[in-house]
Amino acid sequence: MKRRLIAALFFLMLLGIWELLCRAKIWSPVMMPEPLAVGEYLWESLRDGTLGQATLVTLRRLLIGYLAGVAIGLPLGLLTARFKTVEDTLGVIALGLQTLPSVCWVPLALLWFGQTEMAMLFVVVMGSVWSVVIATDNGVRTVPPIYARAARTMGSRGLHTWLKVILPAALPFIVSGMKQGWAFAWRSLMAAEIFVTILTGFGLGHLLHYGRELHAMDQIIGIMLVIIAIGLLADKILFSPWEKYLHRRWGTD
């Protein structure tokens, strides 16, 4: 309770400082709108449905792209950890592509897929899949071999050992890899939405882009706040429960 109170006070104070700086007229209000103006924009766009619609479109892309990234990355990571040949070939590609900033995929996606949903998804998948591959591979490699030996003496073999021993043993690594993959997916989707204008759906990135074109600073700051809020919420809703569970089970607090 006390911690929450302090946190609330801190954010109120930030808002206060913002408001004070605006009133001091250091910058032109066109460049730095008041908090109230931003709030007004958010309220208006919420009421006319623009914001909700854009958030829905963005989250849909993010979720589909990210799930595809995990669905592809997890088995690939298992394969690179299991087979030397896959490690020497696909593992190297994964390592290389992971260092490529995901926004670099945008020009390629545009030319390949045109201004379509597919281009968006492609960028999100490419942004997230490699870190999932690497985290899974890493996780499997750090599993103490004694777990598999113990399982073998109890009659576990092949696929059973992988599903019931190696995978759960690597889970803490895999979850942190999935979290990283999520962060990359989010970043790459925003980059894609800012650069790619498509007619099938206006996402948050588009609103940001048009904010710049219209020189609507209240819109730009408002949307940025929404993007931050979604990132925070995703962390709290999607990953926090998993991490808490794992910490409790493994005793790694």
Binding site: Y147, A150, W250, G251
Partner: peptide, 9 residues
């Protein structure tokens, strides 16, 4: 085994 090799999950 010397280490219990119990599964922490």
């Amino acid at each position: 085994f010397q280490e219990s090799a119990l599964f922490p999950w």
